[in-house]
Amino acid sequence: MKNVTAICAALGLTAMTALGCSEAQDEATGKISWPDGKKAAIALTYDDALDTHLDVAAPALDARDLKGTFFVTVGSYPFTGRMEEWRELAGDGHELANHTLFHPCVGGPDREWVMADRDLATYTVGRFVDELALTNRVLEAMDGESVRTYAYTCGDTTAGGESIVEALAPYAIAARTVQQETPTTENGLPDPYLIGTYAEGDPTGEQLIGYAERILEDGTVGTYLFHDIQGEHLSVTAEAHGELLDWLAEHSDEVWVTTFREIMEYVREQEVAE
């Protein structure tokens, strides 16, 4: 097996300790040896740049010294109307991630709410990546970061009927789906562009914790998809959200809770080590 530290150095990654580059992948194919003796990794992700992310979710995370990933739609009013607060959020160590410029989705039956000019079915892949690139530029102006992750809007992975998954590579190091399971690549590692998530509607704290326990048992990557916290849009209660955060804080010796970007940077390093 190749030496991970040497590879990281060759790639010019100076923050080897932060990225866990000194950690090696287990000899068993696909088994990840997480940093600092952790047994699994979980990212708390929040979609659509909603007001309750700033007003409820971020304070709850900060109170427990946890970091979250906020998949923002930069053309939405809660983002454009509170840009300085989003900038401060990033400055506090949370991740601003790409959730497109206008949140286009594939329209059709049961999706009559999709506006004609934001229907991914009428996009080309070229238009999609142009908007993706512009979103990255806006976010870089906010937080100074050049490495970005992505979340599929409405879980859709096509534009104009063509897959956008492979087109993501120049713009995002990883992408989160809306499916719970994560497929693996040939080397047994999680597919970085099809990372699964817990996205059940109106869950209890017990249900949220149950998913974390399964991720811990499997020793893999897990994510949560939240929209409103104690709000109106696909909401989860602040109580259930808080119960999960308390559990994660109490199990910080076992579960690596950090941004989706940091977790996926680490996972991508395991690919290099193969």
Rank of each mutant, 00 (worst) to 15 (best):
T197I: 03
A172S: 14
L194R: 15
N187K: 11
P183V: 10
L194H: 10
E200P: 00
G188W: 08
A199T: 07
V178I: 15
N187P: 00
Q180E: 15
A172L: 11
Q180V: 03
A172C: 13
N187I: 12
A174G: 11
V178D: 01
T197H: 05
G196N: 05
A199D: 10
G188M: 04
I195G: 00
Q180P: 05
Y198F: 15
T177M: 05
A175C: 05
T177H: 05
I173W: 10
A172E: 11
Y193Q: 08
T182D: 11
T197N: 03
P203M: 02
A174E: 06
G201S: 13
E186Y: 03
Y198R: 06
A175S: 14
T184D: 07
R176A: 04
T177K: 04
Q179Y: 12
P192Q: 09
I195Q: 05
E186L: 08
T177I: 03
Y193V: 07
T184S: 12
Y171K: 13
T184K: 15
A175N: 08
Y171E: 11
P192K: 04
I173C: 11
A174T: 10
A174N: 06
G188P: 09
T182M: 09
G196E: 04
I173T: 12
I195D: 01
A174F: 08
E200D: 12
T182Y: 07
Y193D: 02
P203H: 04
A199Q: 01
Q179A: 14
P203T: 03
E200H: 06
P203Y: 02
A199E: 00
T185Q: 12
E186Q: 11
I173P: 11
E200N: 11
L189C: 09
D191N: 15
I195S: 00
Q180Y: 02
N187D: 14
L194G: 00
P183C: 12
G188S: 09
E186M: 06
E200L: 03
N187A: 09
T185L: 11
E181N: 14
Y193S: 01
Q179N: 13
E200F: 03
Q180A: 08
P190T: 07
A175M: 06
T185M: 14
G201Y: 08
T197F: 03
V178L: 12
P183L: 10
D191G: 01
G188D: 06
V178P: 00
I195M: 11
D202A: 13
Q179C: 06
A199K: 01
T182S: 15
T185Y: 01
L194Q: 13
D191F: 05
P170D: 12
G201R: 09
G188Y: 10
P190R: 04
A174H: 10
A199M: 02
P190F: 03
A199W: 00
L189H: 05
D191Q: 11
I195R: 02
P170H: 13
T204V: 07
E200I: 00
T177A: 07
V178Y: 01
A174I: 08
E186K: 13
Y198E: 01
T197L: 02
E181T: 15
R176D: 01
Y198W: 13
Y171L: 10
G196C: 06
T197M: 02
A199H: 02
T185G: 11
P190E: 06
Y198I: 00
V178F: 02
T185C: 14
Y198Q: 02
Q179G: 04
Q179H: 12
P190D: 07
Y171Q: 12
Y171C: 11
R176F: 06
